[in-house]
Simulated scan of single mutants.
Amino acid sequence: MDVDLIFKIAAIGIIVAVLNQVLIRSGREEQAMMTTLAGLIVVLMMIVYEISNLFTVVKSVFGL
């Protein structure tokens, strides 16, 4: 795992938080919720990909 992954997740979190606040202030709560969910899905997909890589490495180390 690299430090870049942490920075990417933090950047996505900051962008989603700013967009969420802007949309809430303009009275678009539904779009704010969808933006938050989209950000969460993107981060979860990144984490699932990294976990998949982890399992692949563990399999190759133990010869499974």
Rank of each mutant, 00 (worst) to 15 (best):
G27E: 03
V58G: 00
A10E: 09
I14G: 03
E30C: 00
I51K: 04
V48W: 09
D4C: 02
S60V: 04
M33G: 03
M46I: 12
L54A: 14
Y49P: 00
I12L: 12
F55V: 15
V48E: 03
A38G: 12
L40Y: 11
L64K: 08
A32W: 08
L44Q: 05
L44T: 13
G63V: 03
L44I: 11
L40M: 14
R28T: 02
T56I: 11
S52W: 07
I14L: 14
M1G: 15
Q21T: 12
T35C: 06
A11Q: 09
V18H: 01
L54Q: 05
Q31I: 10
G63S: 13
V3F: 09
L40F: 15
E29T: 09
I9R: 06
S52N: 13
A11L: 12
S52R: 08
G39T: 04
A17S: 14
D4L: 11
V16H: 00
V58Q: 01
T56F: 02
L37V: 08
G63M: 06
E29C: 00
V42L: 15
V57M: 06
L44C: 11
A17I: 10
I15H: 03
V58P: 00
L44Y: 08
G27P: 02
V18N: 01
Y49W: 08
I24C: 02
A17F: 13
A38T: 14
V3Q: 10
V22G: 01
N20Y: 13
R25V: 07
T36A: 14
F62C: 05
D4F: 05
V57Y: 04
V22T: 09
K59M: 12
I47M: 09
L54H: 05
I51H: 01
A38Y: 05
V58R: 00
M1N: 06
R25P: 00
I15L: 14
V58H: 01
I51S: 03
D2P: 12
E30S: 09
L5D: 08
N20G: 09
G39M: 02
Q21G: 11
V43A: 14
V22S: 05
T35G: 04
K8L: 05
G63W: 01
V16C: 07
L54N: 04
L19F: 11
A10M: 04
T36N: 10
A17Q: 07
I14M: 10
T36W: 06
R25Q: 10
G39D: 03
I9L: 15
I6Y: 09
V43R: 01
G63T: 06
S52L: 07
L64T: 12
I51R: 01
I15Y: 02
S26N: 08
L5E: 06
T35V: 15
L44M: 14
E29M: 05
K8D: 11
V18C: 06
E50A: 11
F7E: 15
E29I: 10
G63H: 09
I47F: 04
A11W: 03
E30V: 10
V58A: 14
I47W: 00
A10I: 08
F55K: 08
V48A: 14
F62E: 02
G27H: 02
L19D: 07
R25H: 10
V58Y: 06
G39Y: 02
I24K: 09
K8A: 07
S52I: 09
